[in-house]
Amino acid sequence: MTDYNFAYLDEQTKRMIRRAILKGLAIPGYQVPFASREMPMPYGWGTGGVQVSAAVLTPEDTFKVIDQGADDTTNAVSIRTFFERTAGVETTTTTCDASVIQTRHRIPEEPLSEGQILVYQVPIPEPLRFLEPRESETRKMHSLEEYGLMHVKLYEDISRHGHIATSYAYPVKVEGRYVMDPSPIPKFDNPKLGDMAAIQLFGAGREQRIYALPPYTQVVSLDFEDHPFEASKADHPCGMCGAIDSYLDELIIDDTGGRMFVCSDTDFCEARQLAGHKGKDAA
């Protein structure tokens, strides 16, 4: 890979992405169109996040990649290796040691700090897309701040199920203006989006959109007075580290359907175990 530029992308492409990131930061929650490039990994596998990471990384950064909260899932491994090769950056699995974290579907449990950047991989950046498939229409709706359709959808859930039936990619309103898709994180993670000390950048490669949340931005999950937003998780402690406040993966451990629950954030769980915390399933 030595024939490629630092962090793979050519400088002109990086400038284009960097300009989009700056406009994204200036208009929190607004989706900035960008001329996403064809990357050497498939669309839908993190090309947006990879392009954003490539545009923000410096050789001195320490980079962490998680998928489903874990550092060792195959696609996380693949993206981490890509940047080790093309940017020569240090990588880590320890959340607090990372200056740039690329993620798919989770926000780390450990609160992030001011020196950090969280880059999300986004499949469908448009929160209104499943209500209105046309980009030309949804763009108009954002410009007119016309979000009635979203509220109608959420309210239909309530009348049918008694609850809002959206459990991930739960829409948020940013600074009272743009409705934004937080990427398919579980709604458990939604409260971490607002007032975060780190910079949050969202990259959707196939859909050619970049958006951003500056630090300490007001982010509110959509809800109703009589049905307030609730960040839920499986009602169990982690079987390995005993944490009661972390998001859990459910594992099927035998063929009679026996289950256990383990932190989806592998670094968080390992750090707790090292510190001596023990769950009921730990050795």
Partner: peptide, 20 residues
């Protein structure tokens, strides 16, 4: 790419659907 990405792990979003 997008079609095949559904092969990737979706434990987290599936788990949130399971709970719901």
């Amino acid at each position: 790419g997008f079609l095949e990405h559904i092969k990737l792990p979706h434990y987290v979003d599936f788990q949130s659907e399971l709970e719901l």
